[in-house]
Amino acid sequence: MSGHAVLRGEGLTIRFGGLVAMDGVDFVLQAGEILGVIGPNGAGKSTLFNLITGLYQPTAGKVFLNDRPLNGLPAHRIVQMGISRTFQSSRLFTDLSVLDNVIIGMHCRTQSGVFDAMLRPSKARGELRQAAAKAGELLRSVSAGLYDQRGRAASELAQADRRRLEIARALAAEPKVLLLDEPSSGMDDRDTDALIADVRAIIARRPELSIMIIEHDMRLVAELPHRVMVIEYGRKIAEGSFADIRNMPRVQEAYLGRKATAHA
């Protein structure tokens, strides 16, 4: 961890009508850090990601990437600035090939426009061929098994490979910050172990990459993140190392309910 804040949120708040989905959340993500985000269902974890990636505009509060404010920027500009994400329920381009999914992830790192495509096809094709080669490399570095399936439609992949592909697609945009929204959902223990190994391999290659990861699987939360923050009812209720967090009464209440902890 090289101690400067890459991503910073200040007083992030969003209301949908009368519902306050996120209420004054502050957070800091350091360069090279993995920050875990946990909390019960409906606590607002995915809302936080949607605010950071520009899918939602906050009612109040600000997000900064390397001290540049992101508020008001559309989602596609935020990707270009260096924040990529995956989705809780995988959202691949299922009718396209595995390789095409990754190439589309490079959209903001390629240039050709309509006139290039129509009038200078060799330039546009050359660029796409280069992107295809790079996408192949990226796939290989994420998973050799995925690389071997690069010509297949994404819909034909097994669940674990879909997750891997979604991560590879997010990495294709060369992000500074990677947001993983419950990558282990729907996975068994063996797949989750493989996922942990994959993420480790990814950060080993990219020491500067910062990751925020929403998780329910406590095994993964114990292993990967340097720090964990807990969200409940749209508020941050705790933050610290997993070892500290797990013993906090408020956190146990949030997960197990008040009664259960009172009886315990």
Binding site: P74, H76, V79, S84, R91, L92, F93, D95, I104
Partner: peptide
């Protein structure tokens, strides 16, 4: 093709 398959995911790949 990306926005045909999933418009939201397309936006999150940097597609305007």
């Amino acid at each position: 093709n990306a926005l045909r398959a999933d418009e939201l995911a397309a936006r999150c790949q940097g597609i305007n």
